[in-house]
């Protein structure tokens, strides 16, 4: 069991981290103190053209090794310790750091692949260093602790974003550690997840064949990589990606007038299907996508107010920040909620 929530303002209007912290706080019955985190979009307007790498270091040596590695590969425009407050509930076992980087011109054509490769290399081969996010003008903040304490630790209320997500974790498959908290991220994809990916082994090996390395010791990671593969690399829409990961049943496909279309999707992308109980919120710079497993074994509620779309494990979490809503609904299994910026590409 976990608690998750998120919202996006389709006009790109930004709010600070107070509301999302409140949203997460309403669902404390759903998680414990073994992992909390936030994703925020639009928080680095002064560095919006650079990739923001958020890292967790175990020690100074890990930081030096990472810096050596990055210097050889990319142009570091700026780097700094991510500001934190002292929170008594969370021991500072990692040093959070951020780099704003430019990819060298030689690699511009394959910029995103180059960056994925860079992240994979750091996570796979530099001991004590973990990249927790790597998108532009966005960032992930996470640690072992309740979401409200993680919010305090990272001073979440100081950031302003047009899209936010929150996650409180009740880990049951892998042990709690900072890197294992949600959101999981690659480039500007970030994922929060309630449930278990029972098809993990199949998904992981499919992703490995496409050059992704699943090193973070938890199942949710595969969702971020699948979105990156399907949407960014294969050029599929978010709708198609969702119907690959949570496809209609054959009995429905067989009597659908789009039989050939869905059959091709399921045949081609069978190893990308996510199986097991889940509710997932996926963000990228342009959109927020929320969807369930095929038989809806985890709760997910959606709501709209004006140009803002909300999703959460519990309606109470949404009502707590916006008591009056235009519309509230429980998305059906296999029917994703997709909210896009009206001016996609906006900051």
């Amino acid at each position: 069991m976990c608690g998750l929530g998120g919202f996006i303002n389709k006009d790109g209007k930004k709010v600070d981290g107070t509301a999302i912290t409140t949203m997460g706080g309403m669902m404390e019955a759903r998680y414990d103190e073994r992992g909390g985190g936030f994703a925020a979009y639009g928080i680095y307007p002064n560095h919006s053209d650079q990739y923001a790498l958020h890292l967790l270091f175990d020690d100074e040596r890990a930081r030096e090794a990472t810096e050596e590695y990055l210097k050889d590969r990319v142009n570091i425009v700026k780097d700094e310790c991510i500001p934190t407050a002292s929170v008594k509930e969370i021991a500072p076992v990692h040093v959070p750091w951020r780099y704003f980087i430019d990819v060298p011109e030689d690699f511009e054509a394959v910029e995103a692949d180059f960056l994925v490769d860079t992240v994979m290399k750091i996570n796979g081969s530099i001991p004590g260093a973990f990249v927790i996010s790597s998108g532009k003008n966005m960032g992930v903040f996470k640690a072992t602790g309740l979401p409200r304490n993680v919010a305090a630790l990272f001073k979440i209320s100081d950031y302003k974003a047009y899209a936010w997500s929150v996650h409180g974790r009740f880990p049951t498959n892998t042990q709690g550690w900072w890197g294992g908290a949600h959101p999981f991220n690659i480039l500007d994809w970030s994922v929060v997840h309630n449930g278990e990916i029972s098809s993990y082994g199949t998904n992981k090996r499919y992703l490995e064949m496409h050059g992704y390395e699943c090193k973070l010791r938890t199942d949710t990671e595969v969702v971020a990589y699948l979105f990156d593969l399907l949407v960014r690399k294969h050029g599929l829409s978010a709708e198609v990606a969702c119907s690959i990961m949570s496809p209609p049943f054959w009995k429905n496909i067989d009597r659908s007038d789009k039989r050939e279309y869905y059959e091709a999707l399921r045949m081609t992308y069978a190893p990308a299907m996510l199986n097991g109980p889940f509710a997932i919120i996926v963000n990228n710079k342009d959109s927020m996508i929320a969807f369930n497993d095929r038989i809806k074994l985890r709760p997910l509620i959606a709501a709209e107010l004006g140009e803002t779309t909300f999703v959460a494990s519990e309606e109470a979490a949404i009502r707590e920040i916006e008591p009056e809503l235009d519309r509230v609904w429980a998305p059906r299994a296999g029917s994703p909620v997709i909210a896009r910026l009206n001016n996609a590409g906006g900051k």
Binding site: E196, S198, S199, Y200, G201, T202, K204, R205, Y206, R266, A270, P271, M273, N275, G276, P277, R294, I295
Partner: peptide, 13 residues
């Protein structure tokens, strides 16, 4: 906890 065979295929986990 799987409802489709393709999620078992190659799932040595």
């Amino acid at each position: 906890g799987l409802n489709s065979l393709e999620s078992l295929r190659g799932n040595r986990d």
